[in-house]
């Protein structure tokens, strides 16, 4: 339900407004107003990781013009940003910082994984320093495929994000739940990257011999 001309669609069904007042008055819900404000002012964080960042810059430049969506205000500080565009390969050395930046963003916050690398490791997936997808650590709202995604693809992803925002309700979004959200534990650089959420796993892995191959598993995947 893309609302290209919001004032007309703002009105809730069943509450008729006389035609001569259509563009001045709307009877609507808090959610709708809230979401409209959000979807037209998603401020991305100015945060480039790799090759995809170049296409992100091109998207912001004059030819593709991100400003048409109210998103041209790239903020270098996470505290002023609503959207983290993870534009590139996420490495183990970088993931603590990414998680930290994510934790520093005020809610509501969204994450867009731009490109194959951010979505799942991409061409470098098997590399020893590469995190296979930023969603292993932070929750992702929109994935944009491509290597790199063209500016058009990124724009499409951003429009999908707007649609997602439209469908939100302040009663159900996770950051307005009682108690709020816990920050994501920052990964630790050990002999390899350590996710503090994995601590329980370490014990069970030690018990079982590592890398046991289960035939059932591979058959299932096939």
């Amino acid at each position: 339900m893309s609302e290209m001309n919001p004032p007309e669609n703002m009105n809730s069904n069943g509450y008729e407004v006389p035609p001569e007042m259509r563009n001045n008055i709307a009877i609507t819900t808090l959610d709708k107003i809230w979401n409209m404000g959000r979807r037209y002012s998603v401020w991305p964080m100015m945060f480039g990781l790799a090759c995809c960042a170049i296409e992100m810059i091109c998207t912001a430049a004059s030819r593709y013009d991100l400003a048409r969506f109210g998103m041209e205000v790239m903020r270098p500080s996470p505290r002023q940003a609503d959207l983290m565009i993870v534009s590139g390969t996420v490495t183990k050395k970088m993931i603590p910082q990414i998680v930290r930046l994510y934790n520093q963003m005020p809610e509501p916050k969204y994450v867009l994984a731009m490109g194959a690398c951010a979505s799942g490791g991409g061409p470098f997936k098997e590399g020893y320093n590469v995190v296979s997808g930023v969603d292993k650590y932070v929750p992702v709202d929109v994935y944009v495929p491509g290597c790199p995604p063209t500016p058009q693809a990124l724009l499409h992803g951003l429009m999908k994000l707007q649609e997602k925002i439209d469908s939100e309700s302040i009663r159900t979004v996770r950051w307005y739940q009682p108690g709020g959200e816990e920050p994501i534990p920052v990964p630790i650089l050990g002999p390899d990257i350590i996710d503090p959420r994995d601590f329980p796993k370490f014990k069970s892995v030690k018990a079982a011999p590592a890398k046991a191959e289960t035939a059932a598993e591979s058959a299932e995947a096939a």
């Binding site: 997936k125 098997e126 050990g190 370490f202 590592a210």
Partner: peptide, 28 residues
């Protein structure tokens, strides 16, 4: 036979640790 390499890793991630490594004693 196609499989996903993540499924073969005990952590489901691109990680490996030396034998007997205990993360709780690791000082960053």
């Amino acid at each position: 036979q196609v499989y996903r390499i993540e499924d073969k890793n005990p952590y489901g991630k691109n990680n490996q640790y030396p034998d007997g490594f205990d993360p709780s004693t690791w000082k960053e």
